[in-house]
């Protein structure tokens, strides 16, 4: 059952715009409607753009008028900077989702709902298992920021799924997205001149490449893949290891004072080191992707290391591949080789 008339929310941001372009390039897709409050910054192909606020009942009219059968909800914004403040962000995320779901519930044509969520819904705690599966109960439920919104949004989507059992609902929990096009809190963290780390912590990070994310969203939009799935690349990188691979110098700061000192030193912009961000750079998060492979039927092409490498190649840090290190090693090897030949 291929998706034919697709509505995508949150298309002014990169990933949404790319997905819309992918859908509009697909001849089997009859119509694509992109919705956002801001006009898209990039070309949407043959897709129709509707500048609408999903907090507004207008969205119901759009769905009904276009005979939408597939809704891809990508408008749970991760940062207050995008929405213009935390209050506005919460409104877009939670009230916006409620309005969208209300509209979907009324529209008899809707058969598939896809939600872009995040592995941040698992919260973060030292008592979490090393690898978290979809059915794991979070030890500490997120109480602030994007993660809290995402938990609430998932709750509303589950409620929708109960009220409309005929709709195939896919909830996709993406690990931290990276890739040359992604601009996220994590990528902005990696682009600070000196990355602040938490003293005495070296979390495991797991990432998902944007191409894998898009492929999974595209597959989910085809329908018939109901359920909640973690989406992440294989393997992990330690934060220290990622910073070394990137060639980014870092400074360890004591956990409590970290944000304040960071701000003082000017290494951290205030929006960067939010509570969530420190959580990520303090505890990290690794999820199990067994369900994605076995039930959803997708094998990520990029491992965490490969996804990060793709990002690092596009945004190298000042110490990346410093020739001095390799040169020193090669020089020493050469000297040893010469000593050996001289003696022989």
């Amino acid at each position: 059952m291929a998706a034919t008339r697709v509505l995508v929310t949150g298309v002014s941001r990169d990933l949404g715009a790319v997905l819309v372009r992918m859908l509009s390039d697909d001849p089997t897709v009859e119509a694509v409607v992109g919705v956002d409050t801001h006009p898209p910054t990039s070309d949407l192909g043959r897709a129709e753009f509707v500048r609408a606020d999903i907090r507004n009942p207008l969205i119901a009219k759009v769905i009904a008028a276009s005979g939408i059968d597939t809704v891809v909800h990508m408008n749970v914004v991760p940062s207050p900077a995008i929405a213009g403040g935390r209050a506005a962000m919460k409104e877009v995320n939670v009230i916006g989702t409620m309005q969208l779901l209300a509209a979907c519930q009324k529209a008899a044509t809707v058969r598939t709902l896809v939600l872009q969520s995040s592995t941040r819904v698992y919260g973060r705690s030292a008592r979490d298992p090393a690898v978290v599966a979809e059915d794991a109960e979070p030890r500490e439920v997120p109480t602030s920021g994007y993660a809290k919104d995402a938990v609430e949004v998932e709750g509303y989507v589950r409620g929708f799924g109960r009220r409309r059992p005929d709709v195939s609902v896919s909830v996709l929990r993406f690990a931290e997205l990276v890739g040359p096009r992604i601009d996220s809190a994590l990528t902005r963290y990696f682009s600070t001149p000196i990355a602040p780390t938490v003293l005495g912590a070296d979390p495991r990070l797991q990432m998902c490449h944007e191409d894998d994310a898009l492929a999974v969203l595209r597959l989910a939009a085809e329908g018939d893949r109901p359920g909640t799935f973690n989406v992440a690349g294989d393997g992990v990188l330690l934060l220290s290891q990622a910073l070394r691979r990137l060639g980014r110098p870092s400074v360890p700061l004591p956990p409590a004072a970290g944000a304040a000192i960071g701000r003082l030193l000017g290494v951290v912009r205030t929006d960067l080191l939010s509570a969530e961000q420190t959580g990520l750079v303090e505890y990290g998060r690794v999820v199990d992707t067994g369900a994605l492979r076995e039930i959803f039927g997708y094998h990520p092409h990029f491992t965490t290391a490969a996804a990060f490498e793709d990002y690092a190649a596009a945004h190298p840090g000042p110490l990346r591949r410093v020739p001095a290190v390799a040169l020193a090693e090669a020089g020493a090897q050469h000297l040893l080789e010469r000593r050996r030949t001289v003696r022989a």
Binding site: A130, V236, L243, R245, L246
Partner: peptide, 16 residues
């Protein structure tokens, strides 16, 4: 060894 450590060119498993 030093080069691998400095450039992050080593593997850790899912548990770190």
């Amino acid at each position: 060894f030093l080069r691998r450590r400095l450039t992050g060119d080593y593997e850790v498993d899912d548990f770190g």
